[in-house]
């Protein structure tokens, strides 16, 4: 049975960002250990509601806070973060999160048109982004590669860049993880809702704009709804939250169009189930744990 190899994190680096931020690097490399640590510490910080700290931002293998130095001295912030880190023990930690069905139309016409337009910016001008990524990661075909990408759920390990953009890290052992470079020269254009990949992360572009990730497909779902028309955006205009588990599901054009119609009519409801996530159980048997998670979703 394959397990997630545990990573012993180095001593965290506490760095001042001017007079009003502290940035904490837990590791230079990505790992579930680093991310779960960032998630656990920032969740605890939020609960403590410390006077003067007004932004708490978990990231992939780091986290950051912003504060008012008039209310809390920067050195006190660092001491506080250190003590919260000391109190946080991943082995006893679990959190409530949600698993979400995330349909994706792989090899869609829109991202295909875009990536062909920017071939000169790419490592391999003669292949598509999917062909290049499949080959680089040792897959025999694009289909097999897509099956792997959609074959196990992905955890949202960070949200940002612009509102609503999730970075997702696939919940598989390291030797099964996809890794690809970003474009040599970023594109000046990417369709909204494009599903891209860079480093070890899937990203979903909330709006049309520049981008440097390899393009694989397009989801009919929104990650940002500024007018909050859709029911699942009632609380926030941004859908993904750090810790969410997204289950990418390969769909065809007919289903894509059906979902888009409902999204545009404001009637679509995301398929979401609440789950309690246990890092320990996931580390011990990721494939079994993922199966249990997706079963909850697919009922």
């Amino acid at each position: 049975m394959s397990t997630i190899e545990r990573v012993t994190l180095p001593d965290p680096r506490y760095e001042f960002g001017g007079d009003d931020h502290v940035f904490v690097e837990l590791d230079e490399a990505m790992s579930f250990d680093a991310n779960f640590e960032a998630m656990a510490i920032t969740q605890q910080l939020r609960k403590k509601d410390i006077d003067g700290i007004f932004e708490i931002c978990p990231a992939n293998a780091s986290y950051m806070v912003r504060f008012e130095p008039e209310t809390i001295d920067p050195h006190t912030v660092v001491e506080t973060l250190k003590s919260v880190a000391e109190e946080t023990d991943l082995s006893e930690y679990q959190w409530d999160t949600r698993i979400v069905d995330f349909p994706v139309l792989y090899e869609d016409e829109w991202t295909h048109e875009t990536l062909m337009r920017f071939r000169d910016n790419h490592q391999d001008p003669d292949a598509t982004d999917l062909e290049y990524s499949a080959q680089l990661n040792g897959f025999d075909s694009v289909d097999e590669f897509i099956d792997a990408h959609a074959g196990a759920p992905h955890m949202v390990t960070m949200v940002g860049f612009v509102p609503g953009l999730p970075w997702c890290f696939q919940m598989v052992p390291k030797d099964e993880q996809i890794e690809v470079p970003k474009y040599v020269q970023p594109r000046t254009d990417t369709p909204s809702r494009a599903v891209g990949y860079g480093g070890a992360f899937t990203a979903i572009y909330p709006v049309q704009g520049a981008g440097g990730y390899q393009l694989y497909g397009r989801t009919p779902l929104e990650v940002l709804d500024t007018d909050q028309n859709l029911a699942d955006f009632a609380e926030s205009m941004v859908f993904p939250q750090p810790g969410d588990i997204l289950d990418f599901r390969r769909i065809d054009r007919t289903e894509y169009d059906e979902i888009r119609e409902q999204i545009e009519a404001g009637t679509y409801e995301y398929t979401i189930e609440s789950v309690s996530f246990s890092p320990e159980e996931f580390f011990a048997d990721p494939h079994g744990y993922n199966e249990m998670l997706t079963e909850v979703l697919r009922g």
Binding site: E28, M30, M64, P181, G199
Partner: peptide, 21 residues
């Protein structure tokens, strides 16, 4: 380059940017 960072020497594993950074 560490795992997940991307291949360019300017790349790091994606992280938060302080305002003013």
């Amino acid at each position: 380059q560490p795992f997940g960072a991307g291949t360019d020497q300017s790349n790091v594993v994606d992280l938060g940017y302080p305002v003013g950074s």
